[in-house]
Amino acid sequence: MEIKIKTKNNILIITLKGSIDSKTAPEVQQKVLESSVNSKNVIIDLTSVDFVSSAGLRVLLMLYRQIKVKNGKVVLVGVSEEITDIMSMTGFINFFEIIDTVENALNTY
């Protein structure tokens, strides 16, 4: 699992690579929540994420909560058909903005 973090125009961009399962999710959750603690606006780039289980959804849920209390926004980028399926099945899809590229996501702020 690879986690890369940068900021652009005061927006935090977190790029994840690998699989988010119950083995890797605790580390991803800790890094994602820690790095976004002072951010209101976060983009998560999932382009290179090949697998997301319910443990991965939990990471998105925790991030959503942390950002929501600050009236911020979480945008997901590079969401594969498979990740779209699991997000639809669980109703998560309705709470996130999903955009095709990081460039276009930056333009939504």
């Binding site: 319910s54 849920l61 925790m62 909560r65 929501k68 099945m89 109703g91």
Partner: peptide
């Protein structure tokens, strides 16, 4: 249920 009010967990079996 909005994500801020959802119980954590319980989705794995459904999935």
């Amino acid at each position: 249920i909005p994500l801020e009010e959802r119980p954590i967990g319980g989705l794995g079996v459904m999935i």
